[in-house]
Simulated assay, not measured.
Amino acid sequence: MASLIHRLFRPFTTTAAASKMSNAPATPVSIPEGAERATLAAGCFWGVEHLFRKHFGDKGLYDARVGYIGGDTSDPSYKAVCSGNTGHAEATLLIYDPSRLSYPTLLEFFYRMHDPTTRNQQGPDRGTQYRSGIFFHSPEQEAAARDVTKRANEQWWGGKIVTEILPAKQWWDAEDYHQLYLTKNPYGYECPSHYLRTFPELK
C-alpha cells in the first residue's frame, strides 16, 4: 500500500491527465543505431528518472521513461501497481549511447542515488513496487550488474544490499502524467532517499 506521504502528495490522477490515463506496452522508441537499454528500479520513479536525466542528459543519455516491470499482470495501472497486487516494480527505462556512457557507470550511479538496503521500501514509501532492482537485457549486462553490485556491497553498503538482479521481461509505460513528472511539476513529491551520495570511487 502506498505510504501516507504518497497519498498526500503523489496523486493517482490529475485533472490535466484525466484524458491520458491509459497505458500500454512501451511505445516503440526511435532508438539510434548502436543504442542500448538499461532498466532500473529504485523506488518512486519520478525522482529516479529526474536524477538520471539531470546527470546524464548531456553525457550520452538519449531518453528515460518511467513504467512498470517484473509483475504478473498485463496492462497494469498506477493504482493497481500501488496496491501491491500486480507484482510490478516502478522502474526507469534508460536509452543510452554505450560509446559515451557505459552500463557500469549507470549502475554505479544507481547505487549512489538510492538506498539499496531496505527491502520493498525507499524512504517513507513502502510496498513491493518500491523495491530495488536491476533488470538486465543481455548476459553482458547481467555480468556487469553482479560485478558492480558485489563491489558496491563490499565498499559502500556494508554487505546490506538487497537489490534484485533479474532478466528484463515485459515493460509497460506508466501513464502519460508520470512521464517527466518533476520537470512538469518542479515542486512535486521527491523521495527523500533519492540524492547522490559522495562515496569514493569503486575499486
Rank of each mutant, 00 (worst) to 15 (best):
L93I: 07
G159A: 08
L180V: 07
E140R: 15
V162W: 03
K160M: 01
A174T: 06
E175H: 05
Y111N: 02
P98T: 11
Y96E: 01
R151C: 00
T105Q: 13
G87D: 12
K79P: 00
Q141D: 09
Y177F: 15
S132K: 04
N120W: 01
Y177D: 13
N120Y: 06
F110R: 10
A144S: 05
A174H: 12
L182E: 06
L101V: 02
S102G: 12
G188Y: 04
K150I: 01
V148P: 03
L101D: 09
K169A: 11
I95N: 03
P139I: 05
Q170Y: 05
R126H: 14
P76W: 00
Q155A: 08
T128D: 08
Q129S: 14
T105M: 10
A89P: 00
E142P: 07
T117C: 10
R126E: 12
A89F: 04
E90C: 12
C191Y: 00
I165P: 05
S138T: 13
G159T: 06
Q122Y: 13
Q121C: 15
Q121S: 14
G158E: 14
G133T: 04
N153D: 15
A152D: 01
G127H: 04
G87A: 11
H88I: 10
G159F: 07
G127A: 09
P124G: 03
D176N: 05
P124R: 05
M113S: 05
T163F: 02
K169H: 11
G133P: 08
H88W: 01
E190P: 04
V148W: 06
S102Q: 10
E90D: 02
K150C: 06
W171P: 11
G123S: 04
V162I: 08
K169D: 15
P104L: 12
A91Q: 03
I95M: 15
F136G: 05
E190T: 14
I134K: 07
E90F: 01
N185M: 13
H137D: 04
M113F: 02
G133K: 08
D75H: 13
L101M: 06
F110A: 04
H114Q: 10
S193P: 08
S74I: 06
P76C: 04
R100T: 04
Q129R: 09
Q179T: 02
K184S: 07
H137Y: 14
G84F: 03
E140H: 08
T86R: 00
P98M: 07
V162C: 09
E190N: 12
E175C: 14
R112S: 07
T105S: 10
T73S: 14
A143C: 08
E142M: 11
F135L: 13
N185S: 03
G159W: 04
A168R: 06
S83L: 01
S102T: 11
D125Y: 04
R146D: 05
P124L: 10
F136K: 05
Y103T: 05
P76N: 10
F110S: 06
L166D: 13
T92L: 03
D115A: 11
Q179N: 10
Y181I: 06
W157N: 00
T86V: 09
S193Q: 11
F135M: 11
L182Q: 13
G159K: 06
Q121V: 13
D75G: 09
D147Y: 07
E108F: 07
T105I: 10
P76T: 07
K150Y: 08
I134A: 12
Y111A: 00
A89V: 11
A168Q: 02
